[in-house]
Write a protein that binds this DNA or RNA. Structure first.
Length: 342
DNA sequence: AATCCGGGGGA
DNA sequence: TCCCCAGGATT
């Protein structure tokens, strides 16, 4: 794996090239941390431009600490799982207060930090500090299951996979080994149609020998996606300002700035109940958006208004691209603002 | 142990 | 349309 990594490692902005890492040079822990958080349930392709923007804006922990959560959420807009961004900011606070702006290098302490779990603590320890740790992510689970021909769903195999991973992890260059596994999983040992013909560990692979790479790991049945509907309300003042709200910290799109909306109910539309009085008009077009657990259809209601209750935030009509607005709300704004000829 | 939490690339 | 992505926190 290490030999393969030396030749084929992906060139990624949070990494040190194996040319240097084999000499013991290590990447910036801050960059490793930011990348690992962004890469949680997010592909390299999607995370990379966000990482570059983030590092340009906040190149170190001090600069991150000095900015606001709102600014971080604004940059995170469109990346999803917004709690990650809020945890990042909270974590920076703790790192400065308790660890002089660095990272503790004990798993127990890392696990106490917000947003850092079993995987991310191991990744930081081994990639940023060269401390051997068992790094198990989705790639590793798939590779190990195939390599040893483990028959079962990933959730049942987890303890076994961890044991196998302990037994195959080298003590030399543990960080590069972890990253080599991820590269193998992303480019060769893919979920669908793995490229076994160019795999560096094919000769050791049980499922390749058995011809079972297409059924290992075994797929779990996924719950069916539900469908929800609701109303969303775009109110524009005479001075071209839009009424917005900030969603509660916990729950869907927590802490993000959104248009007011009704409940989102299963299958049928809920009662149309505008957040405040206005001359509400329904638009013909609806907004569709897909979340992990449900698909959403929103019917857009628009109104010109004179004033709104002061619990609402008024934003200029052209604000949305630089604020903490989630993708579904950007879609809604694009549609709704057409009505007002913006 | 389940469930919640976004969004998009790629097939 | 469906799968899956360098998972973590909550229940």
């Amino acid at each position: 794996m290490i030999e393969w990594y030396d030749q084929y490692a992906r060139d990624l902005p949070w990494r040190i090239s194996p040319v240097f890492s084999k000499k013991g040079i290590k990447p910036d822990p801050y960059r490793v941390w930011i990348s690992e958080i962004m890469l949680q349930q997010t592909s390299v392709k999607v995370a990379t431009p966000f990482f570059l923007k983030f590092i340009e804006k906040w190149p170190n922990i001090l600069s991150l600490h000095q900015t606001s959560e709102t600014e971080v959420l604004a940059l995170w807009s469109g990346l999803g799982y917004y709690r990650r961004a809020r945890n990042l900011k909270a974590c920076a606070e703790i790192l400065l207060r308790e660890y002089e702006g660095g990272f503790p290098i004990e798993e127990k302490k890392l696990l106490k930090l917000p947003g850092i779990g079993k995987y991310t603590s191991a990744a930081i320890l081994t990639i940023a500090f060269g401390i051997p740790a068992i790094v198990v992510d989705g790639n590793v689970e798939r590779i190990i299951a195939r390599l040893f021909g483990l028959d079962g769903t990933i959730s049942k195999l987890k303890p076994e996979i961890r044991t196998y991973m302990m037994n195959v992890s080298p003590s030399a260059r543990p960080g590069d080994f972890a990253q080599a596994m991820m590269d193998l999983g992303a480019t060769i040992c893919k979920p669908l149609n793995p490229e076994c013909m160019i795999c560096p560990i094919r000769d050791s692979c049980k499922s390749y020998k058995d011809g079972t790479t297409n059924i290992i790991p075994r797929k779990t049945k996924k719950p069916i996606k539900t469908f929800r509907k609701g109303y969303i309300y775009l109110a524009v003042t005479k001075s071209n300002e839009i009424a917005m709200i900030v969603r509660p910290k916990s729950g869907l799109l927590g802490g993000m700035m959104c248009l007011p909306s009704s409940e989102w109910t299963e299958k049928k539309y809920p009662k149309n109940s505008p957040p405040f009085p206005g001359e509400w008009v329904a638009l013909d077009q609806t907004i569709r958006h897909s979340f992990t657990h449900f698909d959403l259809e929103l019917r857009m209601m628009v109104s010109s208004i004179f004033s709104v209750p002061n619990s609402y935030i008024l934003k200029p009509f052209n604000f949305s691209l630089t604020e903490k607005v989630p993708s579904v709300m950007k879609k809604a704004l694009v549609l709704g603002l057409k009505y007002f000829h913006f």
